[in-house]
């Protein structure tokens, strides 16, 4: 079996399995902790609070925004860029259609693809540099956090190096790194892509009951 065959075949299915089973397992274990009930009399609906918190936390809290310009710029550029690339880059759309049998949708034009990559790169680099250079994040970051940054960077870098789509080895390299990232994902803080919902819900519910705008 050649390297290409291995990356395209067994490793891909293994990565898929680890990715989905890992995520499911992690969410199940979190929820299995159960909820400590609250017997206090609510002032307002906790449910409304949790729905609010789910969306309100996309914007910085009043008065905090001016202190976290770098987080905001980097965070938004990276995350929006990443989602746009993941969902609308032409090679990705073709991939989903071919390998996951999804109906193909309209990809973004090449110029947008390039522009979005640039923005996503700036965002990721700002976040990563902040993690390494800011005394606060230096103190609280774990090896896992740094690994997440490096892996994400390598995936994006290999993707952009393969942009010409003319050389099989570059595609295989990109795909291999994606698989490594997928295997790493459920074990890492990258899981925040899912857990943020639970966390915001819990907070929104707690303070929503108390009538505090979350």
């Amino acid at each position: 079996m050649t390297v290409t065959e291995f990356v395209d075949g067994p490793l891909w299915y293994f990565a898929l399995a680890v990715f989905f089973l890992g995520i499911a397992w992690r969410l199940v274990v979190i929820l299995a902790n159960g909820w400590r009930g609250d017997l206090s009399r609510p002032r307002r609906s906790g449910l409304t609070g949790s729905v609010r918190a789910l969306f309100s936390r996309f914007a910085p809290a009043p008065g905090i925004g001016r202190r976290i310009g770098l987080h905001l710029t980097g965070g938004y550029l990276f995350h929006l860029g990443l989602f746009a690339l993941l969902l609308f880059a032409a090679p990705h759309v073709a991939f989903y259609a071919e390998r996951l049998s999804l109906p193909a949708w309209q990809p973004m034009p090449h110029w947008a693809f390039v522009l979005v990559s640039e923005l996503a790169f700036i965002g990721l680099m700002l976040l990563w540099l902040n993690r390494v250079l800011n005394p606060v994040t230096r103190l609280i970051s774990s090896t896992g956090d740094h690994l997440s940054s490096i892996l994400t960077f390598l995936v994006m870098l290999s993707g952009c190096l393969a942009l010409e789509q003319a050389h099989e080895p570059l595609r295989v390299l990109h795909f291999f790194l994606v698989e490594v990232l997928m295997i790493y994902f459920p074990f890492s803080s990258l899981m925040h892509a899912f857990t943020f919902v639970l966390s915001r819900e819990a907070l929104g519910y707690r303070y929503g009951r108390r009538g505090v705008p979350v």
């Binding site: 902790n33 800011n134 606060v136 970051s141 857990t195 943020f196």
Partner: peptide, 11 residues
């Protein structure tokens, strides 16, 4: 648990 899991150490 979900609070602890959701933290990305952004500071």
């Amino acid at each position: 648990a979900s609070h602890l899991e959701a933290c990305v150490h952004c500071g």
